[in-house]
Design a protein around this nucleic acid. Structure first.
Length: 825
RNA sequence: GCGGAUGUGGCGGAAUUGGCAGACGCACCAGACUUAGGAUCUGGCGCCGCGAGGUGUGGAGGUUCGAGUCCUCUCAUCCGCACCA
């Protein structure tokens, strides 16, 4: 039988077969070990791109492999369906966001289905559906009840193009992460989640994640930005107010020669009022305001500031210290005020030199001049305290703790820990998101809705104004409501939640996606959670992955979950590149997965993308590489269809005694391949080398094909194993060929094979003979030869004899079963 | 500036524990089959050299019988952070 490989004819057929027979539907089964395999769910932009294909192909290999290895595999898919693009499309094309989104979901779902991924589609969810966002709102209510959701007025990031505020995490280099417009600062009253309460745990528990890339953990550590130090206050001369500062170097407090407030600091106006410096201060503050955050915080920006005319008193020694304001002190870190120690802080040093402020050395070291005049830079290293009264002669570490102790004893200040992490700003002035379940009542004030009144439904029939303002503001049926507490008139909150809130718990929902009254069932999450393998792009290293960790810890605290970390193992896949740069419409280097699948089939697309590069690394798209993958599948097709009839009735025996050399070699290759593929997929996630091993097996089979006589038992075993091993990568063709070989059932449901150690035993092995570390010869010898015999054979080899004549052999090194190295001079 | 990753043929990449560098694939070259082939098959393919051989994993040193792998220094590219007190 010799038909042509026609992916179009077989892929749809098997996809339908899997779906109709509910192959990938799972439920909790206490008798099987569970495995939760998850890929980051996509935003339904309308079309699948190559990044998705890579992400889901990787996930599918893992799912299919684990399932064949006896695991009960949960492998769900859904849609991160709220978000701004839907609104932009609505404004542009006059289509409601809901309609646009659902049409996109339909389209992408069809595209995904043509990939043949083993999803349990019965668990599909979309965050924009009321049965889902009801529980996103429920999360808000629970956070509110636990004091972790609050509203405050503060300087927030405003994207003028998206017409909404953004979280700190969504501002990249002073620009909006989405649209790259420059972000402005605005004073607004907004909703926050108190993620800072979890800062320490988010930091500490990174230690419990050995299955995460170090890179991602480092990024999170930096983002959380913990620093230990102390906070203390300094009285201000002539005022009741005092200023509070944070420092990590209390040991240098005797070296303070000036103080600095951030230009936005609320005390600036008070302390300079009526002073002759007042107008200079005002001019400086105005100048700072007109600067963007980006240019304000650029490292190379020169330090600049003005004296306020006011003085503070150093509580340690009563010294009178001038208070300045300067561009290099930021309002949103620490207390927005610092003590400046120019001798031991580089920034203060530069500033002091520029404005002729005195510099006083208080840490003495052989590595640094004792005289401030001679210093060319601040000294930040270790040493002993000097000019510091009773603290003199203490080392830096002792000094820090002694000064803190003194401050605490004398009510000056105390040891504190400061984090860079800010609370999570979750309000968005947008329509297409989960409404924040809050009303404003004239009598009761801010009232969070009770659980029973959820969901707050998003009105779907709305009109968009070209201004970009959220239409919710104009829908009176939405905004006019009653207060759940007093029943009086109330106005509904019109802000919606950041879409990252929706994606912070979707993996829990997958465990029991049809629950009506609770976000998920305890039994289900206790069985499935945590996710064993999470796969997605590294661009979520901070945003999504930290928010999801925060939610998981919160849900653990309120007894909804039994795990404290949501993702045990994390794989951050590399990007798909074309011509060395990221595929993008603007560069015109986009390759459409739909086209590739149409031309070559999903099996080829998957195989190429898995073969071209290991998953963590960036992958260079190559049309010729795709051809190569297609060619390989054709080779497999021909190989197996050629043999199909002759092996139909062959039974694979349990043992293979008395094989001829060629058949033994083939069997050796078969079992070596099983071993290699099992390790590469199961332990290392190196799909590229697993596929190359399968290619080698196929090459060996082609070579065997010309040999006579043929041992069809060995051939059948090799072919069947090849199909099983290849099936997680290219499942459709393997199903078809499995059937063509006369097998019952599905190749995807076969037990993953284990190799036969007997087949890997070799009587004769090849040994490399080196002279002075250089390969000079190869010999084939019995595997059980002793080291001494081997040495004798090696030195007697004609080639070695010739090269060592007249030389003294001083040493012979034998690496068992590998090589002999002769040292001679 | 700080932190991290990477660097291997013409290209994508292998070499898992210090032990034959370049598996596998692409491209290319030669041949076979063929009316023809962009199908398929066979062989070749790091560089220098006719050859024996030499040489070779960004660069320079070092450790070792032996280094892509370990150590020191250095260069390049990419990513993250960046006045964080």
């Amino acid at each position: 039988m010799s038909t042509k490989y026609d992916p179009k004819a077989i892929e749809g057929k098997w996809q339908k077969y899997w779906e109709e027979n509910k192959f990938f539907k799972v439920s909790e089964d206490p008798n099987k070990p569970k495995y939760y395999d998850l890929e980051m769910f996509p935003y339904p932009s309308g079309n699948l791109h190559m990044g998705h294909v890579r992400n889901y192909a990787i996930g599918d290999v893992v799912a299919r492999f684990k399932s064949m290895n006896g695991f009960n595999v949960l492998h769900p898919m859904g849609w991160d369906a709220f978000g701004l693009p839907a609104e932009n499309a609505a404004i542009k094309n006059a289509v409601p966001p809901s309609k646009w989104t659902h049409a996109n979901i339909e389209n992408m779902k069809q595209q995904l289905k043509t990939m043949g991924i083993s999803y349990d589609w019965d668990r599909e969810l979309a965050t924009c559906k009321p049965d889902y966002y009801k529980f996103t709102q429920w999360m808000f209510v629970k956070l509110f009840e636990n004091g972790l959701a609050y509203k405050k007025k503060s300087a927030v990031n405003w994207c003028p193009s998206c017409q909404t505020v953004l979280a700190n995490e969504q501002v990249v280099d002073g620009a909006c992460e989405r649209c790259e417009a420059e972000v402005e600062k605005k004073q607004l009253e907004q909703w926050f989640f108190k993620i800072t309460d979890y800062a320490q745990r988010l930091l500490d528990d990174l230690e419990k994640l050995p299955g995460w890339p170090e890179k991602v953990k480092t990024m999170q550590r930096n983002w959380i930005g913990r620093s230990e130090g102390c906070e203390f206050s300094m009285p201000i001369e002539g005022l009741k107010d005092s200023m509070t500062v944070f420092t990590t170097r209390p040991d240098t407090v005797f070296g303070v020669t000036y103080m600095v407030l951030a230009p936005e600091h609320p005390l600036v106006e008070t302390i300079s009022r009526g002073k002759e410096e007042e107008s200079a201060v005002k001019t400086f503050v105005q100048g700072m305001k007109s600067l963007s955050d980006l240019s304000r915080t650029a490292t190379d920006a020169e330090k600049a500031g003005v004296f306020t005319g006011a003085y503070a008193v150093n509580p340690m020694n009563g010294e009178r210290i001038p208070i300045w304001i300067a561009n290099y002190v930021l309002m949103d870190y620490g207390t927005g005020a610092i003590m400046a120690v120019p001798a031991h802080d580089q920034r203060d040093f530069e500033f002091a030199r520029k404005y002729d402020i005195p510099i006083r050395v208080v840490i003495k070291s052989d590595d640094s001049p004792a005289d401030a005049e001679e210093m060319t830079e601040a000294y930040t290293g270790d040493g002993v305290m000097v000019n510091s009264g009773v603290f003199n002669e203490l080392g830096v570490q002792d000094g820090i703790s002694s000064v803190i102790k003194y401050m605490e004893d004398n009510n000056i200040g105390s040891g504190t820990v400061n984090f860079r992490l800010r609370d999570w700003l979750i309000s968005r002035q947008r329509y297409w998101g989960a409404p924040i379940p809050v009303v404003y009542c004239e009598k009761c004030g801010i009232v969070c809705l009770p659980e029973e009144q959820l969901p707050v439904l998003l009105p779907e029939d709305v009109e968009f104004k070209p201004s970009g303002e959220s239409p919710l503001n104009y829908v009176e049926s939405f905004t006019r409501t009653t207060c759940p507490d007093c029943g009086g008139e109330a106005r509904r909150e019109t802000d919606t939640m950041d879409t990252f809130v929706c994606s912070s718990w979707y993996f829990d929902r997958y465990c029991s996606p049809h629950e009506k009254d609770v976000p998920f069932s305890k039994e289900a999450v206790d069985y499935w959670m945590p996710v064993d393998q999470y796969i997605g792009g590294v661009e979520h290293a901070i945003l999504h992955l930290m928010y999801a960790r925060f939610f998981t810890k919160f849900l653990y605290d309120i007894n909804m979950l039994s795990c404290e970390e949501p993702f045990t193992n994390l794989l951050t896949q590399g990007m798909v590149l074309k011509d060395s740069s990221k595929m993008s419409k603007s560069k015109g280097n986009v390759v459409s997965p739909e086209e590739i699948i149409k031309t070559y089939g999903a099996d080829t697309a998957r195989l190429f993308i898995l073969f071209a590069s290991p998953p963590e690394r960036d992958l260079e798209w190559s049309d010729q590489g795709v051809e190569g993958a297609y060619r390989f599948l054709n080779r497999i097709w021909r190989l197996i269809t050629d043999y199909a009839r002759s092996i139909q009735d062959i039974t694979i025996p349990d043992t293979f005694p008395n094989l001829d050399d060629d058949s033994r070699d083939l069997r050796f290759k078969t079992h070596a391949t099983i071993k290699k593929v099992s390790e590469d997929v199961g332990e290392r996630f190196n799909f590229n080398t697993a596929i190359s091993a399968i290619m080698e097996l196929s090459n060996t089979l082609y070579a065997y094909k010309d040999k006579k006589p043929q041992n069809l038992e060995v051939v059948k075993e090799a072919l069947q194993m090849l199909l099983i091993l290849l099936s997680p990568f290219s499942p459709h063709i393997c199903e078809e060929l499995w059937k063509i070989c006369g097998n019952e059932g599905s190749v995807c449901q076969q037990q993953w094979p284990s190799y036969d150690p007997e087949a890997l035993v070799q009587d004769e092995i090849e040994i490399v003979i080196q002279l002075m570390g250089k390969v000079r010869d190869h010999i084939r010898i019995p595997a059980d030869i002793s080291d001494d015999e081997l040495k004798t054979i090696a030195v007697e080899l004609p080639k070695i004899k010739e090269l060592t004549s007249g030389k003294q052999i001083s040493k012979i090194i034998v690496v068992p079963k590998k090589l002999v190295n002769i040292v001679a001079k």
